[in-house]
Design a protein around this nucleic acid. Structure first.
Lengths: 337, 337
DNA sequence: TTGAAAGCGGTACCAG
DNA sequence: CTGGTACCGCTTTCAA
């Protein structure tokens, strides 16, 4: 006997085929209660025969949980964010959670709109990867859904936000440069609207001050966290005739651009000028020369976020240790002789 | 008057507050039918006051459509796939579709499992970005959900698969090298289990043959589409003492690795050896020297996929022009003198 | 134009 | 242990 059915098979059909009530079939599916051996077998059999797969949408509606975590990223093509993404996914997938990813493109209004969409789709929680929304906005959202945010300090019943010590790491990077004898160090800034950019710049300034090195405003040039910005920055530095023996780029992408600008003028790295970056993107291990930089353990950050999220959803107190930034010394910095 | 409510407000609450039936409220929400001015106003008012947002899950259950497209990628951290991802998203978001992304890690069983999960979540369609599943498996899945696949040729009622002309583009790349006077050209292979890897190798071989250049098996070395593979490949080439004036890397990542291996031995690019890659990752514009490579218009591929998917879901015939590969000449290839 | 009610596919409470 | 049934939030006949 073969029946033509349009859609996927339902639990009712399984129950019917197995000669039991949907309730029993459901109980069997979820192990919610004991089911007699006979019935169990016939249910198993029916499931097998009909190739039944539960409808997660229906379950979601009934249970009030979609087993989905919304992620607001800023760019789907950022190696930076994507590392965190896999950390998150790895942390939550064992619990049956999937990720619904949307990107806000560093635009507060768009970010809010995306979060709204995420909530409309009834995600069980949303993680916000930096961005330009105000803390207040996020706090507001957290009334409606648990939130964990990366890149800002936030604390509350259904919200937790944290950031890594960019300032401290920037100081470390500067210490390395200075310890290697560099005094005239250029700094390529990040996007003005990003917290991290400021922290890194502050680290640059304060470390210079700490060592009583006279800061030269001409050595601080605009950038945008992109390769193109780094390229322009160094071009500007070079045409302005500024002297420097090292460059601290606010992130690796900028460092790539800077490196190319130097290459164009046949300035060697690190023989003529040293470069240090920030982020430790995967490809920074393969630039020529391999880039000395500050490692952001984004995968670990993602894991933390994932476990925190699961904790908030399950109303558990979870304590996770935040990963730390660290310097990774490769070959783009050389001692000044 | 203020009422304490646990969850989000429902359409029933809105209807109640507005003094109309849920049916009318629903009609208003979707513009399904005319609603009298008076009622309309009171509904609008209630929506505003209660800050009502429709429950997409409930709508999904009722309508049999989640307005979600499942995407099976192979890696969340691949610049290659992610470009396509944003193309897809851009193409479908205007239609109210969101992307549910899962990755299969080039593992057929895992891929199938992910697709199964996607279907369980009742996505309206799934796009498969290459991978190692068999065509048969995909055809099977397409019985249950419309599929568009990238990286394989597939045709059917609810499935469409296509690939770009990797072979032709590889030939073009080789032509460039040969035209620039190169005869001893090394080839770094891609992963053996990927179709594209074979196409590119075939392009390499056939173009050599076409120009009656004696192929040297020692010049074809293993790779894995990763930087590390490219690095090792060139190391092997170098230690084996093989002579070559150019390297054709099966993809940009391999080219990066190759470039570093050369750098380590102080072999200059392109003065001593030329390198050509494949993919044109974003960062290939900023390597030193900028990489000559074959551009894969992944964003456009994504757009096509998105529109095709929308077409399949809406049972429309859509004709989209597939984007073409093209050579982008930068600075890593030099004429042999 | 409007409301009542059925039902999308499950789950869980309540009896038995 | 099992079945009947209400209901999750929304849409859509069907009748009025």
């Amino acid at each position: 006997m073969r029946t033509i059915h349009s859609g996927p098979v339902t639990l009712h059909q399984v129950a019917h085929a197995a000669g039991v009530s949907p309730a029993t079939a459901s109980r069997f599916m979820n192990g919610t209660a004991r089911v007699s051996d006979a019935k169990r077998r016939s249910i198993e059999d029916a499931i097998e025969r009909l190739n039944y797969k539960p409808n997660l949408v229906a379950q979601g509606l009934k249970m009030g949980s979609t087993r989905t975590i919304g992620v607001l990223t800023q760019s789907l093509v950022s190696g930076y964010f994507n590392d965190a993404m896999v950390g998150i996914e790895d942390a939550v997938k064992a619990a049956g959670y999937a990720l619904l990813i949307m990107s806000g493109h560093w635009h507060a209004a768009e970010e809010a709109e995306r979060v709204e969409l995420l909530i409309g789709r009834r995600v069980d929680g949303v993680v916000i990867l930096t961005g330009n929304m105000s803390d207040t906005q996020i706090l507001d959202f957290s009334q409606r859904v648990p939130i964990v945010a990366f890149g800002r300090k936030l604390e509350g019943e259904r919200v937790f936000g944290f950031f890594l010590d960019n300032y401290g790491a920037a100081c470390e990077a500067m210490e390395l440069l200075i310890e290697q004898g560099h005094r005239r160090i250029a700094f390529i800034r990040g996007s003005d609207d990003q917290e991290d950019a400021h922290a890194r710049l502050a680290g640059y300034r304060d470390t210079l001050a700490k060592h009583r090195i006279e800061p030269d405003p001409d050595l601080i040039v605009a950038g945008d966290f992109q390769e193109s910005g780094g390229l322009q920055a160094v071009n500007q530095l070079l045409t302005s005739g500024a002297r420097f023996s090292a460059i601290f780029a606010a992130n690796d992408l900028s460092a790539y651009g800077a490196r190319l600008a130097l290459y164009r003028r046949s300035i060697r790295v690190p023989e003529d000028v040293s470069i240090i970056g920030f982020d430790d993107l995967h490809s920074s291990m393969y630039t020529t020369p391999p880039l000395t930089t500050v490692r952001q353990p984004l995968y670990d950050v993602g894991s933390c976020i994932g476990t925190m999220m699961l904790g908030m959803i399950g109303h558990d107190e979870v304590k996770v240790a935040l990963p730390a930034l660290s310097l990774v010394v490769r070959e783009s910095v050389r001692r000044l002789t």
